[in-house]
Design a protein around this nucleic acid. Structure first.
Lengths: 141, 141, 141, 141
DNA sequence: GTGGTCTAGACCACA
DNA sequence: GTGGTCTAGACCACA
């Protein structure tokens, strides 16, 4: 499954969905015009309340990334890919900066931190599922 | 000042205090036996409600890092230095893993991420205040 | 085309249709006995789901403005012209009152509001298509 | 009481609150730094669910009009007065344009409409309570 | 006490 | 079927 939600990582669930949708658009696994999974189906798939999904979709609409097709669902806007590519870098950079600041402040050396990053990236690149699944089955309307 | 609190980085404020106390102990800028600032004085210094400070100190006690010296305040436990050195790496590594996972999941390449980390570390090492202050003025009782 | 639907003006689409049919009757561009476009054709013309059109026609029937001619379609009732002339003023006045109330409540002065109305009427009178089209092509049966 | 909510006027309740808060700031009856009524107290006063109030306050935060004072409530931002004065005109003008368009489209003459506006303004100016009440009792923190 | 988030469940307009 | 709004009620962090 495409979304991976962690209820206890300090990021609100609806915001994790917002971020991951933007990432999927940035990656190109969600393309302009494409319909997102319906609020109801995604709420079942992720075992979340549908209000939580609806809130994420609404945020994405007000961010100009999704548009409402009345009665049909919610689709990726034209031009969203570029917007999301830029947003992705900022979203990641902000969280990264926060962790790195804490690490330096906590007395770790830049070398140690870089080493830790390299080690983790190596471990994780094997693990991370870089291909979407549930989204690829969505037809372009 | 030693503590640096960011209300919007996703980590609860009381937890930021918990983490930063552990880091200070790991670094040696807080040593076993040393008294921490009183709940009251720290709440003033950080402009936070004293409940928030008290909650952090309580967490640190239940983590076996601080002990209550009745009538005198709260002090670093014997053996806390070793515990905190180990904890520090884990605390940082866990947050780091969360961000790196999101970045990889979001479609950024390992190269890009490492580059971003290097750039940010360079920027931040100039900024981060690696010397504690308020804590060094605490006498060892 | 006669109908002009705005999905985002706070009035439900089916209600916009109800209102605009009444206006057309009040104006005389739709006369007693005249058949309305079929649900199907109007839904195509307005790019709306036929349920939406059907709901509007049903409302108009229960308002005593349209009547069902079985097998032939839906036609303007006898006496509807007078009814709609009276209804038109009320329908407009009610929406107008709502906006003016909000404006006064919001602290705008009567002068400012009148000025705004004059300016907008001037702009709009050039724009608004006061001639019906799709409806005039309907023969009186 | 300051807020006047109409559940059936086509504008969502949370949006009516958003608009009326902006109007109050534009008018100067809510000033920068001033605390708004708490979510809970306003939900009681207006007999609405607290989520509805919270949603409005959140919208106002993301509009840059209110700011969160953690644990204390939500206050008017510095600079909000100017922003809201501009917003007010646009918010009213948009609704007004929609009604005037409908009126012209419905076959009313500009003269008739202006006359109707004058008559309603006259009626309403007597009625509308231009002085806030519940808000004036809020202390500036 | 304050607001933020989430769940469960209802009703609505629209397709 | 689709999303939007609202209610009732819970738990959390913070003051």
């Amino acid at each position: 499954m495409f979304f991976s939600i962690d209820a206890n990582n300090g990021v609100a669930i609806y915001d994790q969905i917002v971020r991951q949708v933007k990432f999927a658009i940035a990656e190109g696994s969600l393309r302009p015009g494409q319909l997102l999974p319906s609020v109801r189906s995604l709420s079942v798939e992720l075992a979340l309340n549908s209000n939580t999904i609806a809130r994420a979709y609404q945020q994405l609409q007000s961010d100009g990334v999704l548009e409402l097709l009345r009665g049909r669902g919610v689709a990726v806007c034209q031009g969203a890919t570029k917007v999301c590519k830029e947003a992705r870098r900022t979203l990641i950079a902000d969280r990264l900066r926060s962790v790195l600041t804490e690490a330096l402040h906590g007395g770790l050396e830049s070398n140690e931190i870089e080493e830790l990053v390299r080690k983790q990236l190596k471990q994780l690149s094997g693990t991370v599922n870089t291909v979407s699944s549930s989204l690829e089955s969505q037809p372009i309307p």
